[in-house]
Amino acid sequence: MERAAWTTAVKVGGMREVEPGATGAAGGGWLGPCGAQARVEKGVRRGSVKASAAHRRAALADRLATAGIWALSILALSTVALVIGAVLWKGLGTALSPAFVFGKPQAMREGGGVWPMVVSSFHLSLLTLALVVPLGVGAAVYMSEFAGVGRLARLVRFGADSLSAVPSVVFGIFGMVVFVVYLGLGYSLLAGALTLALLNLPTVMRSAEESIKAVPRSYLEAALATGCTKWEAVKRVVLPVAVPGIATGAILTAGRIVGESAAVIYTVGLFVRRVPWSPFRPAAPMAANIWHMYTEGALVPDWFRVASGEAALLLLIVLTLNLVARTTAKAVRKRMGYRD
């Protein structure tokens, strides 16, 4: 029905012949290879093409839908800007002052800093990555090079998918029961790192797998042809090429660890006065400390300033990590001769 209407429209208007590609598809695929549809619409607007009612309806619906998609997108994208802007507006002044970042925390008086919390977040990330990256890469190598498509591979895939869906607060109370109480680690960096390692294992594994899969198959085949065993070929040829991708995944994971709080609150701790230097010591990552300020905040007169500053600092750290990860990924891709 509508198709027929279009054909008529073109016939009635007596279209001028145009060289293919004159308007080009570069502006957007919808125009068709020679932008014929746009020309018809232009003709309709100018009156040189007579349009049927069906055509006019279709054209109107198209324009309305386009406007709707633009409106929804602008709303969604402005949310991003709004969120980042609001967090920084509330806390950037505090977050950038050295007295706050490097200062000692206060439990009762105002003017406290957050240096032990910053170090806690940093140590927690390092410890978790040290646990989760070897495991994740090992699992990824197994899944992409050795597992095949058997029942075992399906079981591992099921485990990873299910584990990635478990809410972080469930990991939190699991870590509390198993690592804090059962293994007797108490509230400590290690208990938190073990919990977070389990939480992040599926995503680390997935990103490592994608990086390994991106290595051309011919590399492995060439290595095997020279007499390498499978493991030698993987270790000396495939993994070195996949390292940048794995590193990108690890940096993004660090961002997730720094921002995690629900799994940390009942495994690591909420407030410390001193910088934690041992994995067996309690610590207070920034994210958990914001929660502490929110719940017990009334103890500190300027809890609002501290929490806002921590939120801004946390956001800056996470955004920087994401930026670093993506820039490295891009630089490496370029050096290796891939294009985006």
Partner: peptide, 23 residues
């Protein structure tokens, strides 16, 4: 624009919560 949306995915939930609570 894609990168803008991905940025939103990276914002820690505690930060979003704090923003919800304060604004």
């Amino acid at each position: 624009f894609s990168r803008g949306v991905e940025t939103l995915a990276g914002i820690p939930s505690i930060v979003l919560g704090w923003l919800g609570f304060t604004i």
